[in-house]
Amino acid sequence: MSETIIKLLIAIVAAPLVGAIIAGLDRKVTARMQGRVGPPILQPIYDVLKLLIKQPIFLNRVQILYAFMHLAFMMLTLVLLILGQDLLLTLFVHAFATISLILGGMCVRSPYSRIGSQRKTLMLLAYEPILVIMVVGIYLSQGSFMASDVVAAGAKPLLLSLPLVFIAYMMAMAIELQKSPFDVASSHHAHQEIVKGVTLEYAGPFLAIIEIAHFYEVFLLFAVVYFFWAPYNLANAAVGMALAAGAFLFHIVLDNTFARLPAMWIVRFMWVIVFLMATTNIIWLYRLGTI
């Protein structure tokens, strides 16, 4: 029991740091690709620390509650995964974390923020089924919904049985990381047509909360990529790391080569092409009769 608690505490502290460093690397590598020097790798951490000491300006108090809910549910997602809990339930918890953010953007009388929220809802609609399908695929190939069983030693790498699902997941991940061409709801770059979308009306410490939640999310997303190759084995861990690194580079290249697309286009793309791709993989697994 105490061992679990220590593990959880470490995870809760370390995950956002790792997420922040990934985000920092992201900015650095992007800068280098554009021929710039780029910010220090720890820049996201500086940003958050700065936001924490800024004046806490806000519009209404509901907004603040939603920000805390966003963070809490993102942390809960992590905790459930560390506890080796049911993946589908974890996914729902994660979806609700996103919904909290959406609601936070909706509950203010700011048109930009509201439009951002609506787009974010569409994005949720676009990638959520894919993630559920992914979990179903994991069940079909490993015979359990439990995260602990999936990462258990001896389980065969997921990537081998779920190659198409992995590609679909890459797309879903790009949406969640707010990478072009999917960054319609809120973007890391400045001049967007809806200013900053969902997070527009959050400032100071409240924005910091959302940033921290985003670090958790970044960590989780890359952790999932890592677990596409079974981890409990040093050699495999290296492959998993390489996979995560590859995903990282893929997203940066994607971000830098594409222009932003309309929200409905993204939904259609995800529901038709990506969703079909994922389901093809699933049907293949059903035909193999692994369960």
Partner: peptide, 15 residues
């Protein structure tokens, strides 16, 4: 490249 200094060009005064 002012981003070297951590400068981010945000689109809105609240940030």
């Amino acid at each position: 490249d002012v981003e070297r200094f951590g400068v981010v060009h945000v689109g809105n005064p609240k940030h």
